[in-house]
């Protein structure tokens, strides 16, 4: 078992009322799963993903990741935990405009204190694997959306995470680019055994996954 959420609640107070963003969420994820989270706008998909990614906190419940109880950890340890095991892919890529493709890929490694030579090898490997060696010195603005997301996925993968969290990874892409990215996810999941949780609106994309979690108003349905 990779992670387990037990009775997770998250809320905000607005005008004296408690508005629930997540309500009593229970979720168990095994290693090697490919889960799609679906639901209408405002149903809590992104919030759930952020909670799983430890970027956001929750108000009640228990969260176990591997052998750690996330709900008891201090922020610093949580950060170390996700740094080690989780890679993120965003709808709007979030590549740094000031850095080249190569430098963008290198960034997570810097924060994990890999040695220079080691970093170089890992970046070269990743460039090779994603077939973007020729673009390594380009800046994000010089790439198409599909290529940027490719770099985004490569960056998420570079430090060998156990889990990839993707928040509408194809939301900004056309159908052909979307398909390529989804195929890539499928391949990663099946061949490399990477666990993936994606948030998506598209039934078609959701079909790539092994399991679908539906949310409505913060509740699992």
């Amino acid at each position: 078992m990779l992670l387990q959420l037990n009775n997770i609640f998250k809320w905000v107070n607005s005008g004296g009322q408690r508005i629930f963003l997540l309500k009593d969420i229970n979720l168990q994820v095994e290693e090697g799963e490919f889960i799609s989270v679906m639901g209408p706008s405002g149903s809590g998909k992104s919030t759930l993903l952020n909670v799983i990614g430890m970027l956001d906190t929750f108000d009640e419940g228990e969260y176990h990741f591997l052998d750690e109880s996330v709900h008891t950890l201090k922020e610093k340890h949580r950060a170390n935990l996700y740094k080690e095991y989780i890679g993120f892919v965003f709808q709007s890529y979030h590549l740094l405009d000031e850095l080249t493709v190569q430098e963008n890929l290198e960034m997570p490694l810097l924060y994990k204190k890999y040695k220079g030579a080691e970093r170089k090898a890992m970046v070269a490997d990743m460039l090779d694997r994603f077939n973007i060696v020729g673009k390594k010195d380009l800046f994000p603005a010089q790439l198409s959306g599909g290529q940027q997301q490719l770099v985004g996925v490569a960056r998420a993968l570079i430090a060998n995470p156990k889990l990839i969290l993707a928040d509408e990874p194809t939301g900004n892409l056309n159908s052909q680019q979307s398909e390529e990215i989804m195929e890539l996810f499928k391949k990663l999941n099946q061949e490399d055994g990477v666990t993936i949780i994606q948030v998506t609106h598209s039934e078609k994309n959701a079909a790539y996954g092994s399991r679908i979690v539906n949310l409505l108003d913060g509740r699992k349905v």
Binding site: Y82, H94, P108, Y111, K112
Partner: peptide
């Protein structure tokens, strides 16, 4: 802001 956000998500510590 984006730079801060991305760096943090990629594991940058506040100190760095």
């Amino acid at each position: 802001a984006k730079e801060v956000g991305v760096s943090k998500v990629l594991g940058a510590k506040r100190r760095s």
